[in-house]
Write a protein that binds this DNA or RNA. Structure first.
Lengths: 248, 248
DNA sequence: TCGCGCGCTTGATCTGGGTCAAGGATGACC
DNA sequence: GGTCATCCTTGACCCAGATCAAGCGCGCGA
């Protein structure tokens, strides 16, 4: 099967693409040097599982490139995605042995990993890291709570529109593309993964995407390439205040 | 209308009932003394709003006694509860001006508050506070993600059972009541509040509670007083692994 | 003691999204 | 170029939970 590969040649932190957004964002040069000593890269192919729920995790790390998902599964197979990990997002929890979720690479994925023990020790000595991690965790908590509203109270159509607007927004902020005019991006998820994120079935996802296309809210090229001619319209379809800060 | 009251006589941190679970759990005596200088108590009556979403928050704090809820509301009135605040839980976010949610007291409530600015400054100088806050935030994130599974994938009956088991568990851990045998507790929420937590209507909540009663999973005295004769049975009804750690 | 309101229950009916089922498109590999 | 698998779409039907509606019971204020 697909074999995971540990990349040996260390990249330089200073020119890391996620340098300014990851856990290490606030670190000084000397702190970076110490981090560099305990870091290593790992690559995963699309579809590979990074960690299984319950497995012992001996590392924490950041997504450098690619996309991963955090999912929870019930005994009977029902699954719910509980997080979408984009570049700069943090994986793992200091101070906990096992992973609470399945982490799966949905695209080819590169992660910058730190061995957990040394990282935890560094955290104690390096407030910049703990501060940044707290800030990131609070942001994730906000995102999770926003998602609770989506899951609990929105219609299927609103759910799809919400997901599209989140992906569009994240994509735009990552690529620093100007927001005016049409937004264009690729869906990083299959219909099934979207369904798992939204608490729907893949059939409903497909139908609602078709409906949004029919109504001119989005435009599709192939199955994955999306154009949003009017972002405000999409926000309305999502049931959000149309003012919601475009610049995260 | 109900008037909020600022309690002036400061209680002593050392003998505070939430001393060992709140943000200050890790603080040394001297750190507590400094906290004590910037702290004050506020009381709210059942039904009062502590903060409105969007309002400027000039404090953060801990729930000392009573219960509050965190809710989000859409323009058309649909509302979703995104958090249940029990004694020792933290309210507010360092490093952010406004509140993202409505915070409402559902029972009479006492909070231990800190002015935000001084608290933020103390956090920088007192790693014990930041560490504890990170730990608590990570726990809340786990809870939010567990709730995403409930909202996205569980049936109405499973949702009710999940809520009951959470309340039972929290109640048991708070009151250090032994878990063996029947669990007994009072529901701190109206049917409507439960519906808002679970992404259901209050009618469905009522019907499912009646059904669980009819099936002997729970026993009701009045509308709020619940007896759970067999906790394992309740966990099964919730769709959870029956092993899920009883001792949080 | 009465009456009123709030929180709750229960019934009847409707409907959004799930389920089951049948293909269609695309791309990898032989 | 054909086969196969994966991902996606669309249709027909069904059901869990929403919606609409009526009424109960308890606590509180007059």
């Amino acid at each position: 099967m697909l074999k995971e590969e540990t990349v040996s040649h260390n990249h330089n932190c200073e020119e890391c693409p996620i340098r300014h957004r990851a856990v290490c964002a606030r670190c000084e040069t000397d702190e970076l040097e110490r981090l560099e000593e305990i870091k290593y890269y790992r690559s995963f192919e699309a579809g590979q599982t990074v960690i299984w729920s319950g497995d012992k995790m001996d590392f924490v790390g950041s997504v450098v490139s690619g996309i991963a998902t955090l999912t929870q599964t019930m005994e009977d197979g029902r699954t719910q995605m509980v997080g979408l990990l984009l570049p700069s997002d943090f994986v793992g929890r200091p101070g906990r042995e096992g992973s609470a979720y399945d982490v799966v690479a949905t695209t080819d994925l590169v992660m910058c990993c730190f061995r957990k023990k040394p990282f935890e020790q560094m955290m104690e000595r390096t407030p910049h890291i703990a501060q940044r991690l707290l800030e990131m965790t609070l942001d994730e908590l906000d995102a999770a709570r926003e998602w609770m509203l989506v899951l609990g109270r929105k219609t299927a159509r609103e759910k799809i529109a919400s997901l599209l607007s989140i992906i569009a927004r994240r994509d735009a902020s990552l690529n620093l593309r100007p927001t005016q005019g049409a937004l264009v991006f690729d869906l990083p998820l299959t219909r099934e993964a979207m369904a798992d994120y939204l608490g729907l079935t893949l059939e409903t996802v497909s139908r609602q995407i078709s409906a949004l296309k029919r109504d001119g809210v989005i435009h599709l090229e192939g199955k994955r390439h999306v154009t949003v001619p009017d972002f405000t319209r999409l926000m309305e379809e999502a049931g959000d205040d149309a003012d919601g800060g475009m610049l995260a």
